[in-house]
Design a protein around this nucleic acid. Structure first.
Length: 810
RNA sequence: GCCCGGGUGGCGAAAUCGGCAGACGCAAAGGACUUAAAAUCCUUUUUCCGGAAACGGGAGUGUGGGUUCAAGUCCCACCCCGGGCACCA
């Protein structure tokens, strides 16, 4: 047959229509097949999919299709992280209600999803802004409230003036808002709801051992740093005069004989009684000048309080200072300064003339010599009374135990991670299900009254209080306990709450009795492969690990961790620049589908670089991918059916075919370097072009069929079209993945590189398994080799069977 | 400052276990087809030296050293780029 031009529009439209109501992508509930849960992070429904989304989904889709072809029962769902601020901002800007705006966006994006033929089980679609979903957010909140894992407290919280709401610590980046990188976050004192993620700090840290190998090290390191566990000792110094304890936290209690002052954070509560009016003003100024600044640029400053503290170990009297480098939010907000063995203390005490007294010496330091200060390593304790002579580690242990015995301290563990503040003073989120009653206090909404539904009619102003406060029918409510008039909580939940457990809901998305049926979770969990952006390394991924542990502890699930494997794909940049709305260089998915076709776009984002690396969108590059798909299509159409030809190249082409298949199969099972997979398919096609006239009519259909199957995970439309052209029936991505034949993939003869002194001088061929001696003599006899070794002495010959002979001469 | 990545042609990159550096793609140049262009197909393309050419030889994976018969790959030191954490006691 004459070849047909590659008309991507016609091909994709045709199959798009035929697949409209198809149900190939449904996960089976009762299946004898092994299960595989592949998940891509759910998008925020901003209105359009861009090429970054396409990359994320193309990776997951290739894997899902491959797993189906390998005979797995695949769960591959998609949903919408539908609550959040942009909907409110759009409402203010365009006078469209957030709900309407969100639903329109979802509809538009879903259409694009379908154009790209991503293999989702849309029956399981979850949208977090629907009461059927967020009622379970409320339910989880109540469960946590009951167990003391949710609590309310007045606290200094991060406030973004642009978002006009509170941010979690995880949402503050370099002192600025994560959504507004140029807006410094302010501190405000507000009554807020918190989730006690710190109760799980140890588990979150320890269970990372289970994730090693399955999660990128980078992500684990970031989480480890974020949790920031440190082991040390709490010690009470005593305020001279009153004897009031001043508790400090230290990781180096072994250096405590070298403590020459105690330093409090400027906002330490003790300052209230310690400082006079004048000093209080200066302390306040210290707090203010620190706000929003990079710690590296702040000079250490301190003020002597005029008071003294007593070191409980040696009874020594040391001055009490306040200083800007001591943080209220970490440890106890007070430290002992040991300038000889801590760089920061050294800098501070040097500046203010506070004595520096060494109490640790390096174990290998010759006696009589002294060490350069500050010396912050471990060593041998000296000048420390009865503890002198002990190594640091042992001294830490014994001195901590001593503190506990004597009742002036104890071993202690401090974490950097803080409880998760979830209150948001905004409308478009899950209402927090509590009622404030003047008589009964905070009263949880009874379970049978869930969901607390967000009212629809609302005016959104963007002012600094929840718009819900202005909706009397929402706010005014009878107290569930006493029946008297009360007020509903008007703050809504952080949207990260929604995304902390959505992947469980996919397993049982329509359950109206419970968040899900535990048996279904037991079947599908853990997620076999989770795929998303590195930007969620801390936020979403730590919250969802916390949720999993909480859900386990209330008896809903039995898995410890949500996802066995995590893959973080690289960003897509456009023509060398980071994509952003303001630059107007966002590459939209619909444009891609129009101009190049979904197959080209999908395949392009997997080409050229491994998926974990950043990829640069270049139009010329996409044209290259398009050219390749055209080459494939034209080759197939002109070779079906095929008149008889020699078949001289059959062996050669079949070998390449099976080598390609081997490579792709191995990559899917291990490292996912789809760029090299696609490159090897290109090599195969290049060979098909070169040998087109020498492939027999018997071999060709087998070759083309395998080619269609190999392309199925990457270019579903084209591979289906080819499949049909070849007379295949049904969806190509439900056929079995072709097994490669190691015999066919093998070369006939080994090519042996012959080196002289490590430089390649010649190549010989020999059957596989040729003995060393035979290879050596062949190599030595080689004409080219002779010219390099003639007249020289052969020192030795190294032979690697089937690979290489290296002749060393002098 | 600490902890991770990374540095290879004009460009994106490949080389998976220490064994032929530069697969594949882009861009560029030349050719075929065409009245012409586009599309398509074919060829060339790390660099220097010699040669009319086939070809031959040298150098070459951030820099300097080392291990080895053999190093992009392993070890040591340094430089640069990206990311994370950061007065965390």
């Amino acid at each position: 047959m004459p070849e047909k031009p590659y008309d991507h529009i016609a091909i994709e439209l045709k199959w798009h229509e035929r697949w409209q109501n198809a149900d190939f992508y449904k996960a089976e509930e009762n299946s004898s097949k092994p299960k595989f849960y592949v998940l891509e992070m759910l998008p925020y429904p901003s209105g359009t999919l861009h090429i970054g989304h396409i990359r994320n989904y193309s990776i997951g889709d290739a894997l899902a299709r491959y797993k189906w072809m390998r005979g797995f029962n695949v769960l591959h769902p998609m949903g919408w992280d539908a609550f959040g601020l942009p909907a409110e901002n759009a409402a203010i800007a365009n006078k469209v209600p957030p709900r309407q705006w969100t639903l329109q966006n979802i509809a538009a994006m879903k259409k694009t999803h379908r154009r790209f033929a991503f293999s989702y089980d849309w029956d399981r679609e979850v949208s977090t802004c629907e009461p059927e979903y967020y009622r379970w957010n409320q339910w989880f909140f109540l469960q946590m409230l009951e167990r003391g894992l949710a609590y309310r407290k007045r606290a200094l919280v991060n406030w973004c003036p642009k978002c006009a709401t509170v941010l979690a610590n995880e949402q503050v980046v370099d002192g600025c808002c994560w959504r507004h990188e140029d807006t410094p976050v302010e501190q405000r004192a507000l009554d807020q709801w918190f989730l006690k993620i710190t109760a799980y700090a140890d588990q979150l840290l320890d269970d990372m051992a289970q994730l090693e190998g399955g999660w990128p090290d980078r992500v684990l390191t970031m989480q480890r740093n974020w949790i920031g566990r440190s082991e040390g000792t709490e010690v009470d110094f005593r305020l001279e005069g009153t004897g009031e304890p001043i508790r400090v936290f230290t990781t180096r209690v072994d250096t405590i004989y070298g403590a020459t002052c105690v330093i409090l954070a400027p906002e330490h509560p003790l300052n209230e009684t310690l400082l006079d009016a004048d000093l209080k003003v200066r302390a306040k100024a210290m707090v203010d000048s620190r706000a929003g600044r990079d710690p590296g640029d702040i000079d250490k400053e301190g003020i002597f309080t005029g008071h003294y503290a007593i070191n409980p170990y040696n009874g020594e009297r040391v001055p009490i200072w306040i200083a800007n480098f001591v943080l209220m939010g970490y440890g106890t907000g007070a430290i002992m300064a040991v300038p000889a063995h801590d760089e920061r203390d050294f800098e501070f005490c040097t500046k203010y003339g506070i004595p520096i007294r060494p109490v640790i010496r390096p174990a290998d330091l010759p006696s009589g010599e002294s060490v350069a200060l500050p010396y912050s390593e471990y060593g041998i304790v000296e000048n420390s009374g009865e503890w002198s002579g002990l190594p640091s580690a042992e001294a830490r242990r014994k001195m901590s135990a001593f503190a506990e015995q004597q009742g002036f301290g104890k071993p202690a563990i401090t974490f950097r991670i803080k409880d998760w503040g979830i209150s948001r003073q905004r409308y478009w989120g899950t209402p927090i299900p509590v009622i404030h009653c003047p008589a009964c206090g905070v009263v949880p909404v009874p379970e049978d009254q869930l969901p607390v539904v967000l009212p629809d009619r609302i005016e959104i102003t963007g002012a600094g209080r929840s718009p819900l406060e202005n909706v009397p029918e929402f706010v005014n409510v009878a107290c569930p306990k006493c029946g008297e008039p009360a007020r509903r909580e008007t703050d809504t939940m952080d949207t990260f709450m929604d995304s902390s457990w959505y992947f469980y809901r996919y397993c049982d998305p329509h359950n109206s009795e419970r968040p899900f049926d535990s048996a279904k979770i037991a079947y599908w969990f853990e997620i076999d492969q989770y795929i998303g952006g590195i930007e969620h390394a801390i936020l979403h991924l730590i919250y969802s690990r916390f949720f999993t542990k909480m859900m386990r502890d209330i008896g809903l699930i039995s898995n410890n961790e949500p996802a066995r494997r995590l893959f973080t794909q690289g960003m897509v940049i456009a023509e060398g620049a980071k994509m952003s709305k303001s630059k107007g260089n966002v590459v939209g998915a619909d444009m891609l589908a129009d101009k190049f076709g979904a197959d080209t776009a999908r395949m392009f984002v997997l080409s050229n670089v491994p998926p974990e690396k950043e990829v640069d969108w270049r139009e010329a590059g996409a044209e290259g991918t398009y050219r390749f798909l055209g080459r494939v299509y034209r080759f197939v159409t002109r070779n079906v059916p095929l008149e008889e030809r020699s078949g001289d190249a059959d062996r050669k082409v079949l070998r390449k075919l099976h080598q390609t298949l081997k490579k792709i199969t191995e990559d899917f099972e291990t490292r996912w370097h789809f760029n090299t997979c696609i490159a090897s398919i290109m090599e195969l096609v290049n060979l098909l072009y070169a040998e087109e006239q020498n492939i027999s009519a018997a071999a060709m259909p087998q070759i083309l069929e395998t080619l269609a199957l190999m392309l199925a995970p990457f270019a579903p439309y084209l591979s289906q079209e080819i499949w049909e052209t070849l007379g295949g029936e049904g969806p190509v991505f439900r056929r079995a993945w072709p097994e490669f034949d190691p015999e066919l993939a093998k070369e006939d003869e080994a090519e042996i590189v012959v080196q002289v002194n490590g430089k390649v001088r010649s190549k010989i061929t020999a059957p596989f398994g040729t003995p060393k001696e035979s290879l050596e003599s062949q190599a030595l006899a080689d004409e080219k080799v002779q010219s390099f070794i003639g007249g020289k002495q052969i020192v030795k010959v190294i032979t690697v069977p089937d690979k290489l002979v290296n002749i060393v001469v002098k």
